[in-house]
Design a protein around this nucleic acid. Structure first.
Lengths: 266, 266
DNA sequence: CAGTGGTCTAGACCACACC
DNA sequence: GTGTGGTCTAGACCACTGT
């Protein structure tokens, strides 16, 4: 682990300390000056180490205030209520989050593979997201049995990521997702109130902890008329998200011109 | 423009010089030491300026070699042959790129809006991408009339981005894209050889130059069974791309585990 | 080898947030 | 104000690339 580069060494040490819970989530780290004294190095080098951790989403540095262990990485959730909520506020729509059901003791081979386990059972939480009263998104989340209490305690309109992180102390720092264009399955279409066949994104996502373990799996159906994906690349900056398509027509390309939509993602 | 921050000032100056063509594409900039003398500043500050430009994709810095004005930002093209080709190599598939047709003197209101023009005409280039002999992706690109020669000179299996950049000297540094799940339209389906209705991504993308002008517009249909989108978020790193789904079944989640798929994106 | 970029020092000073 | 992070210096030295 200990490279020859001082700032990476320091970053590794800090990362380990955070993993081991020496600095709880939301807690301030020692100041850059103090850290420099502790590690017997210069401020510039300490800053290099902190920059590494910030890049990985482990800490958040705020000018004039301090350096903090990151709160649950909601920004890793492309489908986050957070993101949607902000979008909604901007567009003056209201979003709600309704629990359909919780299942326990699920046995499924594919889940075992995804979570990298050889045996075990899972719990699921099905939710419906409504926009201006209309059900729009169906989402089902899975965790290992040992964390099932999180689903039991889950309340509508909460951030599942945040709750999971609070209850388990696990920091989610990575997410991977695949998106597939599909026709809404009959049962989902019925739940969402679609009478006719409807295209949708099927999103499958795994969330990965600081320890590199898969801790959460989500599947979501996002009907095409109401949700589109938008991405932006600017040099090495690279972002994408789901956005609500108010008009419901695929020809609305407003998102290209409405730079406001992107502000919070750069 | 000139902030109080030295490194941003320097970055602005360098950016302007590159815009004005003082350093042609692919050309080496003066060394960090030389730049530090020119701007009468320290190496650390010069490096700060260069880091800014690198972040924006304007320059490429190579350890032990030098600092270069970036070649056409192919990496901005999510659908780039480049990317696909690498993928293909890895999966031992062959991809080809066939020109269907070129149109000139196109008049279309939506294009005017996209390019931010009040009047003007456009040219289009339709292409088909085949994988292992099977047509898979339909793509149509548009440029303003003044650049129509690029389409005329375009040869199969070339990178359109690269050619455009070479011919016009315009550097593409930004791209925005929206993706919509659709049913393949009849004519496209016929072209691609699909008999039954088929879900697909409809991708609409604008490419933006260093001068913040829209210079290229692309529409592509990517049938669901063969192409899926995959994204990865790791802290502030954020990437996504289209990948070929060999199996053609939506239940193949191999991409989650196959970290190789992501190597070139981090 | 020479020339490039990358790291690091030991400070100084500036900008920002909070009391 | 005090305390935080952010920038900057004027070098030294290390690591990498190509001849």
């Amino acid at each position: 682990m200990s490279k020859k580069l001082r700032y990476l060494e320091i970053a590794d040490v800090l990362k380990k300390k955070i993993k081991q819970g020496e600095f709880p989530q939301g807690q301030a780290l020692p100041s850059q000056k103090e850290l420099s004294e502790i590690f017997n190095t210069s401020v510039m080098t300490t800053r290099g180490a902190l920059a590494e951790l910030e890049q990985e989403g482990i800490i958040t540095v705020i000018h004039g205030v301090g350096t903090f262990v990151s709160s649950p990485a909601i920004h890793n959730d492309t489908l986050s209520l957070q993101g949607f909520q902000n979008e909604m506020d901007r567009q003056k729509m209201s979003i709600t989050n309704e629990v359909i059901g919780v299942k326990h003791e699920i046995e499924q081979r594919e889940l075992l593979d995804l979570f990298g386990k050889r045996s075990g059972r899972f719990s699921s939480l099905s939710r419906l997201r409504t926009i201006d009263g209309k059900p729009v998104i169906y989402q089902c989340s899975y965790v290992e049995k040992q964390y099932s209490s999180v689903f039991d305690e889950y309340q509508a309109d909460q951030s599942l990521y945040q709750l999971f992180s609070q209850k388990t102390g696990i920091m989610v720092t990575q997410g991977r997702e695949i998106m597939i264009p599909v026709i809404l399955p009959d049962d989902i279409a019925k739940t969402l109130g679609f009478d006719e066949p409807c295209t949708a994104f099927l999103s499958k996502r795994v969330s990965i902890s600081l320890e590199e373990k898969v801790v959460l799996y989500d599947e979501a159906y996002l009907p095409g008329p109401y949700v589109i994906m938008a991405s932006r690349k600017h040099g090495k900056n690279n972002s994408f998200k789901y956005i609500i398509n108010q008009t419901g027509t695929i020809d609305s390309l407003d998102s290209f011109n409405d730079s406001d939509l992107w502000e919070d993602l750069i």
